[in-house]
């Protein structure tokens, strides 16, 4: 059985590691450091950690100011609360292409019991639309650690790193190397492709097993970077399999599914199904219950793949 950890945990751990290598790294949080896990950095580098209080807009723009002076800021809060600073992110961070690393946790419906007010299912859409912004939604500890190291080593503009609250199984391995704009095929089927990000990668792997039992060979791709997205991997999947299911813990409008559809519509139209929040808000419940109720769990993904094959 693979390790289980939340991506936010891998984030905190890796941030504390890269902090050692890059003295320019500074970390900001908005009174959620024990949940976003920036506390790991705080413990090691208290002088380079700034708690901005419950003031997300101020936090984002302070990070922008730090970036103009050569610092490498990582700013964290919950995805839903950081989203209120969208216009600050657009106008002050992205318009000037400032190297601000926005690492927001507790994204998606798997936030669970806190309910709809805390479940950011729109963040990838509003970040992806911003010029200069890169959007990354890692599926496990290895993708997360890889992405954080990559961001620390490439301080060349804004990043949005989308992290989860709930524990997920590691699907990648120790030797995984993150590369921006590159997805990974986790299993190589020739019938149908499932492209997923975040926690739904694990669900997609389970769906592939269910499909295999029915004699359907599914290719599962983890796509950590929604922007820039791995066009080659998508186009190869469209050419080599009969259709594509996208799976994300996010509205089907504007996220991973839309990004894949845009590539296909331009270069290789192919049948698609979209697993995600269907233009609706969530509610309180356990992550598993919510995945079931809102159509995000493995059986729903498997069913979408079967439907696609007709």
């Amino acid at each position: 059985m693979a390790e289980k950890a939340a991506t936010r945990q891998a984030y905190g751990k890796t941030l504390a590691e890269v902090g050692e290598l890059h003295p320019e790294i500074v970390v900001l949080d908005a009174d959620l450091s024990k949940s976003t896990m920036t506390v790991d950095f705080l413990k090691k580098f208290p002088d380079r950690f700034f708690n901005m209080g419950i003031a997300e807009s101020d936090m984002v723009d302070t990070a922008a100011g730090l970036a103009t002076c050569g610092k490498i800021p990582f700013a964290s809060t919950f995805a839903i609360f950081g989203s209120r600073a969208w216009e600050q992110i657009r106008n002050t961070v992205c318009r000037a292409n400032l190297n601000v690393n926005l690492c927001f946790t507790h994204a998606g419906i798997s936030v669970g019991e806190d309910g709809a007010s805390a479940q950011a299912n729109e963040d990838m859409a509003i970040m992806r639309v911003l010029p200069n912004m890169r959007v990354i939604c890692p599926c496990d500890s290895f993708e997360t650690a890889g992405a954080v190291r990559y961001m620390a080593e490439h301080p060349d503009g804004p990043y949005y790193l989308r992290l989860g609250r709930a524990k997920v199984v590691d699907v990648l391995t120790e030797d995984y190397r993150f590369e921006l704009g590159k997805g990974t095929a986790l299993c190589d089927g020739g019938d149908v492709t499932i492209i997923a990000c975040g926690s739904l990668v694990q669900q997609s792997m389970a769906a592939a097993e269910e499909l295999a039992a029915e004699g359907i060979q599914a290719r599962v791709i983890t796509m950590p970077a929604i922007k820039p997205i791995d066009e080659d991997l998508i186009l190869a999947a469209a050419a080599e399999t009969k259709g594509i299911v996208t799976a994300e813990e996010h509205q089907v409008i504007g996220g991973l599914g839309s990004a894949v559809a845009e590539v296909l519509a331009r270069k290789h139209p192919a049948p698609m199904k979209f697993i995600g929040m269907q233009d609706t808000f969530g509610e309180s419940g356990t992550p598993d219950e919510l995945f079931d109720k809102y159509g995000l769990s493995a059986p729903h993904i498997a069913e979408a793949a079967t439907d696609l094959l007709g």
Binding site: S57, D61, G65, L66, T68, P73
Partner: peptide, 12 residues
């Protein structure tokens, strides 16, 4: 937004 940005510069 400018005072927040200025604070970031001043912290740096």
């Amino acid at each position: 937004q400018g005072l927040s940005v200025a604070n970031g510069m001043a912290i740096a």
